[in-house]
Design a protein around this nucleic acid. Sequence first.
DNA 1: TAGAATAGTTAACAGCGTTAGCAAAAGTAA
DNA 2: TTACTTTTGCTAACGCTGTTAACTATTCTA
Lengths: 210, 210
Amino acid sequence: MLTLLTILTMGIAERKIRQKESVRCSILGEARKIVEQEGWQALSIRRIAEAIEYSVPVIYDHFANKEAIMLEFTREGYGLLVEELTKAKDQHPDPAAQIEAMAYAYWEFAFNNKAYYQLMYGLGMPSCDTVRQINELQAFSELIQAPITQLLSRSSKPDTNPFLKLHTFWSMLHGLVSINMMSGTTGGNEALNRQIIRDFIEGFTGSLRT
Amino acid sequence: MLTLLTILTMGIAERKIRQKESVRCSILGEARKIVEQEGWQALSIRRIAEAIEYSVPVIYDHFANKEAIMLEFTREGYGLLVEELTKAKDQHPDPAAQIEAMAYAYWEFAFNNKAYYQLMYGLGMPSCDTVRQINELQAFSELIQAPITQLLSRSSKPDTNPFLKLHTFWSMLHGLVSINMMSGTTGGNEALNRQIIRDFIEGFTGSLRT
DNA sequence: TAGAATAGTTAACAGCGTTAGCAAAAGTAA
DNA sequence: TTACTTTTGCTAACGCTGTTAACTATTCTA
């Protein structure tokens, strides 16, 4: 029965949900701070607990374990990446130009969000089989596959597997990024890398058009 | 003064060196076993100590820290890789065929020596700035750069930077491998990957020849 | 106001890399 | 053979880590 009391109670329940949500947010927020300032290796449950000014077990009320927290960031990372790629893509009508713009945007994203990227690709992290749990990956795939398919349909071999080309594109970029990231130097050889990307994009879009 | 006694003493010293060497070997040996059976995450100083039937501090008489042990394996890994690539290369006189053979050999190596590869590229490991300490990397670079340079010298643009092309080649392969490794499935989609490599090799050697 | 549910705590477990300090064994010299 | 020195290897600890059981104090319900 819906009495005045139950209505009041509902307000209280909602406040509690809000509070819980806010703790959850501050966990993620403080974790982000730590990671951005000191890298993934510095992130520990105890440090998060200290930062949010709660005791350690509170964190386990919001996340099953540390990996779940990291998975959240991985999701966030792919979301951000898709956002950036979309922005780059939308600035060009031509599919070849779109691919090129996205390649550069991908590269920019990786180095502007080093921490995210390293988590997303398990660079220096003990997390391997989390990839399957990321829905955002699909958005990412579709985004890149669209202009590829367009280019292929105009080519002399319109029945080429666009999925194959997508993987080629992705592999190349990720390889370049991860090798550069491991070498430590933020930019590596900035000029050389620009050249490599250009060289690759030319070869890639070329192979799509013929 | 070189008395009979000092000569005897020298034998003892040598035996001690041998013994020390043997402990060092068994550290690496047992570590290898653990890693191959359970992955890098399962490797701990305490587990090595238990396996070699010595106490923990003995390990620190042979290696400065855990990272030093891993560095040893990284070196070993690159050594093995160079070996495999050389074998593949030596079976073909034509530089284009050499590049192709090495690409496949690289792929094979990565999945036949998953543990090594993951260590070498920091996949799931907290070791980033160890790359610079690997001398074997140079051998690797030279091995691949040679046929690239050959192809380029015959092309219409013989002054193209071969170092650039080497990086393109390497990035592509590593990207493909690491994305596949993270997806968990050992082969992923074996047929698709074969196709991707072929597709890539074609585009790559093509771009070297024109 | 008494009882139930929730929130948040302390303290522990089992593991990690690393190292200081000590005991026993081995080698050296008289 | 005995006394001294060096080497060898050990125990035990420090300060971390992720995770959880058990408890208290607070808040809500009837």
